[in-house]
Design a protein around this nucleic acid. Sequence first.
DNA 1: CTGAAAGCGCTTACAG
DNA 2: CTGAAAGCGCTTACAG
Lengths: 344, 344
Amino acid sequence: MKGKATSFDIAHLTGVSQSTVSRALRDSPLVSEETRQRIKAAADQLNYKVDKNASNLRSQHSGTLALLLFEDPTADDSHINPFFLSMLGSITRACALRGYDLLISFQQLSYDWHADYADTKKADGIILLGYGDYLAYRDKLEKLAAQGTHSVRWGAVLPDQPDVSIGCDNFQGGHAVATHLLEQGCKRIAFLGDASSHYPEFFERYRGYVAALQEGGVTAEPMLQVDATESTEQAGYGAMETLLERDAPFDAVFAASDLIAIGAMRALTDRGIKVPDQVAVAGFDDIPMARFLNPPLTTVLQDTKLAGETLVDNLIRLIRREPVETLVLPVKLVVRRSSLLASR
Amino acid sequence: MKGKATSFDIAHLTGVSQSTVSRALRDSPLVSEETRQRIKAAADQLNYKVDKNASNLRSQHSGTLALLLFEDPTADDSHINPFFLSMLGSITRACALRGYDLLISFQQLSYDWHADYADTKKADGIILLGYGDYLAYRDKLEKLAAQGTHSVRWGAVLPDQPDVSIGCDNFQGGHAVATHLLEQGCKRIAFLGDASSHYPEFFERYRGYVAALQEGGVTAEPMLQVDATESTEQAGYGAMETLLERDAPFDAVFAASDLIAIGAMRALTDRGIKVPDQVAVAGFDDIPMARFLNPPLTTVLQDTKLAGETLVDNLIRLIRREPVETLVLPVKLVVRRSSLLASR
DNA sequence: CTGAAAGCGCTTACAG
DNA sequence: CTGAAAGCGCTTACAG
């Protein structure tokens, strides 16, 4: 027996046809229990494994999902947003549990992803995950959909989207943060993060914040909103600098992501402004390091485990041509010291 | 043209044979420049992509690498060591740059990974990454090697290993930390982390620490070494509790990983013991949150970018049957406030 | 430089 | 329940 064993080797060994071997190994009900046992024993003995390439080629599906993490071209090599890293972890586990393999890839937003994984039949479907200008990649999503590629995307859930998207309740999260800050007695709450349809998730968080302010009888001031389109510490630092230069007083900051909040907190600290005593700070995502910051960061927990499972389950449903809906996942406000003015 | 285009469709369209199409698309020098251009234009027009399953089946290699992250069975679902997460990031990028796809999978240490990826021909080789009892999985590595599976592993670089392993200079890292703590005036430096051949990376760090102590005229005391086999905060917390119960005085702690250090710091803080004023603390790995801790954590930076590239490059070399050596990567001590007694 | 043909190792109608 | 045969879409000797 030279090289890897094939189904023919098992057939010879057990005295059945190769077709029967193939059936037995896939637990087809067409094979008698006794034959199946014998074949499986022989397969074990020869250390036989089905050749996935042959099997996929013939059956025209791969049992593989592809995860595409896309990033701003400005993002540097070294760091991935920790939030995506935990999504990645939960997606990986969810795939394994459901018997799918996972291909993973990072892509610049500019790259032609609509072409790669599904078209080459390496994957049955694609999970899209990433930050970036939604309006800039929207037509790629449309192309994907037009080609009949199965895909699900983590992002804002909006009407009229070309694909199936699943996201957390960004509006509710923003609302909860702003309500909490108001309850702490804050009156002038700044928002760091884009507030336009270019970044729909941030925009939803912003809209939730505005709604909560209104409910509290406070008007959102344009002077207190600063764009931070990238979810990085540097963007947060820069946005805080911009805010400070405007010389508009504020007693709280809601950053559209934890990374932005971290950068903003550092900018405050660098200028001797105390958090939370002078300015309360809150973020969004609850990345692992949020609780280790000084002070620990108030933020909005997105359940990445549930999110990963939901993405995988819905993609599989899509592949099986079962009905799928866009879905909004609940969020949870996590209050930590960075926003607790009781400690004043 | 129903369904996806095949190489035959392109052949018809351009009036050449299917063989020529195949050659042209893979830039074979056997095809004339003019023909190649025509074929590529037609392929673009039909949005044609080579079917990887067919191509792999025929050529008997997949252009895919598998990353296996194995974990202690005790590890809970939700969190992966941030250090591995950054390795994963850098491995993913390195694969992409070299034109390989990456399959990723988390496995319990107990699972039969020697069987899965390479045998089914889904991947040409495997990258092994993880913590766990080395002596417990060593025979699996041997089985892998015996089967001729191409694999590289991140871990301690020791003599007589069954596979190609690549790791950082754990000894030097431990040595640098202990030397630094001695220079800070610490005399009684505890070590948290296993110090046996079950966990060779920790053991090397421990040996570096012992060597540095000896050079400084200090003898390592068994009373000041506490096992922490898992790289988790809980393990670090527990190890610190054990150390405190022993009632042996200590003025510094070298934790075998940042996660262990974080747990240990918390245990100290919970008891009102000040870091670094009463006890200096250092870790190992330089995970992203290390610099955000309070106080920021002194640690040893492992260059995950270089590590990922080295793993991928060497695995590819193995696949091409080129010579490969085990490799030790340099480390760098990163001093932060947690060990700076000047601030006393 | 190009083409006709074989064959990679499976799955799946089709026939019994 | 089982087998003989076709064929998935490529790559690669082989022949010219």
